[in-house]
């Protein structure tokens, strides 16, 4: 279960990434953030973001054009 949820639906690049960064910066290490996005580009982008920042992408789930990314803050 996520500690925080960020709904970035309807937003386009780079807003989902910027809002994810902001949300994570307010959280403690080890906490879980769910990011909801409708931007198809965010699938690769969230993965790249986690690669570069060291945050852990636990899962990516797609359901009816919505993507839910579960990220653990390092």
């Amino acid at each position: 279960m996520a500690d925080e949820t960020l709904d970035a639906s309807g937003l386009n690049c780079p807003l989902p990434i910027l809002k994810t960064k902001k949300a994570l910066s307010k959280m403690d290490a080890g906490k879980i953030l769910d990011v909801i996005s409708t931007d198809a580009g965010s699938v690769k982008d969230i993965e790249a973001f986690c690669n570069q920042t060291g945050n852990k992408l636990i899962s990516t789930v797609e359901e009816g054009g919505k993507y839910v990314f579960t990220i653990e803050k390092v």
Binding site: C13, P14, I17, L18, T20, K21, A48, F49, Q52, T53
Partner: peptide, 11 residues
Amino acid sequence: FIIASTGVAMD
């Protein structure tokens, strides 16, 4: 601005 803001978001 897109590249710069994304860059800082990625440390």
